[in-house]
Design a binder for these strands. Structure first.
Lengths: 201, 201, 201, 201
DNA sequence: GATGAATGAGCATTCATTCAT
DNA sequence: CATGAATGAATGCTCATTCAT
């Protein structure tokens, strides 16, 4: 099997699923954009659902790997966390589409029209990505950098915050550099929104 | 008389869209659950897309009204914000489905298979809900309670954090009372994740 | 549900399935010949397979009922058998197509590409038609008209003989009246092919 | 060398067509079971339809040759006929699949989705097999063993009877030795179903 | 000869929408 | 107002056939 064709399909599928969502994405369009015949997709993926799953898998692994690599040279957990935030931002900003798709799937997992089997796979994948962030959190807690709050809530707070910032920058049409968003996000996540004066009261 | 039928359709549509998402939701099912004939829906709504839009509108207005009412007796902006967080949590916990649907639509707005006209309406609706939160933020900034950060990022941080916590409590199957989530979320949003020792360094 | 539409579909499906066989028959053609839209078929039948099954069922019941009615006025088992043979011939000559379809299915039952569930239903239907003939045989055996051979083999011999005569009259393009075929078949079935001279030896 | 591949394909095609029927049989499966690439089939057979035709031809010739050989040592037409029946039974019992396929095709010939050209070839082939049986009949008639009935009806009666007995032994799940079936069939074909007492009346 | 990746016409099925009653 | 039978465009998927290697 031609690795190149399969890869091409995955890349295009990423685009189309991201733009349209699962149901509105058409196999015809994926094939056309990939410059292949519709039937060819089915040589590599058993069904639309499986293509969807593998696309997401491909992207989440890509995201985790990218972040892992970026933080691999750092030792201090807080530095690792900050770099993680920054690189997460760069990744989802550059791959907004992927990110929309994955985020969409988080929700879809919670109910929509997929088979049980795939739904479980999706949730499992999503968990993996969350657990990766949770590990970063745990390191920071253990070293005393972060408050001893359940890492699930810490990572929920962080990823929710990051994702919503990207969504809103799109929806409200704000032109802001990833680096600036990253530093605002880091500040908000670590120190909170309350003004220091208030805090000292 | 007719008001009742229209309302019934909206209530059922909320359920079905929430459970299945836009494309997977079927007019047949909505009609059946509402106990009316399929054709009847078209007496009140021009198309599936319009029904969808009006359903979301109905729900977002409901959410805003609920929160508005809850905070209407409070004067201090920080109290209003805290109560807003708490009541937002109760609302989206009690109406998880609605909330998933709306969140889903935020993403969908960014690209999916809706007509331009409706896409813009959706975004507008979404903006209204965000702007309501932004106003709460602005009050707090003006009074010096919150850091003078763009209210858009503040409200992004808050709503992202709240939504992701609810999503993850479902995905990771955590049983936690809304009140407890609310206080964790408030603490994280206002004071951040960093431990106080670190902060004092 | 309009009984008329369902009946029309069954009538046309009978024709098309008979002419083309299960796989080669197209839902498009059935719809077109019935003068309805393709989707309409699915209001009355869940799938092509179910339509096929119900068509066969409809036809076998029709055949049995026709024969039953014809022999209902006769009391002597041998007369009933002879009339059964004659009316069977008239039926399958007039409804050659139905008959080809049913015969095709007998074979298909033994292996082809249908779901287990339907395969069993088909066999069951086929059995019913055979068992009806077997009962006619049993009556004749009990009255001493026929040799005490397992009625299954007797009915196999009779129906096989009748069917093959019709097939071959078509394949070899022989123009022969049903009544004549019927009397040849009756003679062969009852008295055998051996010449009387030989027999007396 | 090439002969071997072609033969292998024919053998496997026999199996697959027999199990699935023409339309449900897949070139992929034939290739896979034959242990060759799909394209290779097209080096030896122009199309699926031609492969099908040649497969049937191969089988009918095999059947005729088998019977011919078995009766080649016998001189008396009645003995030849009896041995023909017996050997036909053994053949179609041992190669039930082949037999189902051929029988299926008899029907298919009468209408299904094959091109005119091939349809005629199929009928021609079928005729050959029937004519072989008819010659056995004719010999017997000429010698006064059988009634002077059109050999076409005689062979129809015989082959119809034999085939239906095999079908029903499968459908009704009867375990019976070919020899026993053969003797019942012979008795029924030659002497008929009517009891002797009745006959003598 | 042999391969198997690629093709694309073809088909079953779905479902939003319409309209005669 | 309400119905629900009918529509038909749209789409996922199959599989015989081709052809560059």
């Amino acid at each position: 099997m031609e690795k190149k064709t399969k890869l091409k399909i995955l890349m295009v599928a990423e685009e189309v699923f991201a733009e349209k969502g699962f149901h509105a994405a058409k196999m015809d369009e994926i094939a056309e954009r990939a410059g292949i015949a519709k039937g060819t997709i089915y040589l590599y993926f058993k069904s639309k659902e499986q293509l969807f799953f593998q696309t997401i898998e491909f992207m989440i692994r890509g995201m985790i790997d990218t972040i892992k690599e970026k933080i691999s040279t750092l030792n201090d957990p807080l530095d690792r966390l900050k770099e993680g935030i920054s690189s997460y931002f760069h990744y989802i900003t550059r791959h907004k589409q992927i990110f929309f798709m994955i985020l969409n799937e988080e929700i879809a997992s919670s109910g929509k029209g997929h088979s049980k089997k795939h739904k479980m796979k999706h949730i499992e994948l999503y968990r993996q990505s969350q657990e990766f962030i949770m590990r970063l959190m745990k390191e920071c807690i253990d070293e005393g950098y972060l408050k001893p709050i359940n890492p699930l809530w810490l990572s929920s707070a962080l990823t929710g915050l990051l994702q919503k910032m990207v969504i809103n920058s799109v929806v409200f049409d704000i032109d802001i550099a990833p680096d600036e968003m990253s530093s605002i996000a880091t500040e908000l996540f670590l120190n909170g929104a309350m003004s220091e004066k208030e805090e000292q009261q």
